[in-house]
């Protein structure tokens, strides 16, 4: 085994790429859950985003337009969930699971003609000489725009939830929807917006997989990334920077175990492959072990249907 063969700066740079799909999806779900809605359909929205983004990018030749298409596709599927759970008051857990299965199915159908095609390349941003700096350049100044967008989105979501009036209202709706209604806030409208935002984020995450990380289209290519995103939201105690940490940790262990496999570590491959899931959840559970604090982050109305009783 030769650990010196691993280039750590490259490893950090590639963990950011590996983590970004999960980070985007988890950020969206964070906002949804903060509004008091549990959408278990993240996986379905991600994979729909993956094929929508891929198809649009291939047809138009522009990855940027592709990302917009992916966000629209994810949001559209999320709105189906919103109509079912917020208007028709269906059970959120069952509807979310159905959404996942539906997303997997319809993406396979849409993707029939796109198997084996290469998408247009998403260019790296040009930072001039900064990119040539040793270590720092590799880690910070050698990425495509979606990485910087996802990091900016972490900060934006954190600021929105913590300091803006809109964020305060969103948290209030998630904490006690009856009280929010009594104060005159439109619970259902706010939740619709949150759910659509969550769907758009999941769609972007999926498209990042199919356009940048892999980059090509294969059926079922999200391979459980949506479920990990869901878990990360919970174990991060519903905090934006906790989500960032969880996603990068998962991405980091994923990339590291691939490197270890390549370096020929004498551990069965299966153990290495399961390690990202185990380690991420273990670390986040330990971090959120202070139950009183975790309970404060959890929206009290999470998963409960709201119906104005008058």
């Amino acid at each position: 085994m030769d650990l010196s063969a691993i280039n750590w700066a490259v490893l950090v740079a590639s963990l950011m790429v590996a983590a970004t799909p999960i980070l985007l999806a988890a950020l969206g779900e964070l906002v949804v859950e903060k509004a008091g809605v549990l959408n278990l359909g993240v996986e379905g929205m991600m994979i729909l985003g993956a094929i929508c983004g891929f198809a649009v990018a291939v047809e138009t030749g522009s990855p940027l337009v592709g990302f917009f298409g992916a966000a629209a596709g994810g949001a559209l599927l999320a709105l189906v969930f919103a109509v079912l759970t917020q208007v028709l008051l269906s059970n959120q857990v069952a509807t979310g699971l159905a959404l996942t299965l539906f997303g997997l199915g319809i993406s396979a159908l849409l993707g029939q003609g796109y198997v084996g095609i290469k998408p247009p390349k998403t260019e790296k941003l040009d930072f001039g000489p900064l990119s040539d700096l040793p270590v720092v350049g590799t880690i910070l100044f050698n990425h495509d725009y979606m990485i910087y967008f996802s990091l900016a989105l972490v900060a934006a979501v954190w600021w929105f939830l913590r300091y803006s009036r809109g964020g305060l209202i969103l948290r209030a709706v998630g904490e006690n929807h009856e009280a929010a209604h009594a104060l005159g806030y439109k619970v259902v409208v706010i939740r619709f917006a949150a759910i659509a935002f969550g769907g758009a984020c999941a769609g972007l995450g999926g498209a990042y997989l199919s356009l940048v990380r892999v980059p090509q289209w294969t059926e079922g290519m999200t391979a459980g990334a949506g479920w990990i995103a869901l878990a990360i939201v919970v174990f991060a105690s519903w905090r934006a920077f906790g989500v960032l940490l969880g996603a990068y940790l998962f991405g980091g262990v994923t990339v590291l175990q691939l490197n270890l496999q390549a370096a020929g570590v004498a551990v069965p491959v299966e153990y290495l492959s399961m390690s990202p899931y185990l380690i991420t959840i273990l670390v986040l559970v330990i971090m959120s072990a202070d139950r009183s604090r975790a309970a404060l982050g959890a929206p009290a109305s999470l998963g409960r249907s709201f119906h104005a009783s008058n």
Binding site: L168, I169, R171, N176, A179, A180, A182, L296
Partner: peptide
């Protein structure tokens, strides 16, 4: 002032009050 308080446990006093105002 409601009988069953229209308050939010996980928010602080100032945030709760801001939610009940038009232009806080």
């Amino acid at each position: 002032v409601f009988q069953h308080f229209s308050l939010f446990n996980a928010l602080d006093v100032a945030e709760n009050i801001a939610l009940g105002m038009e232009n806080p």
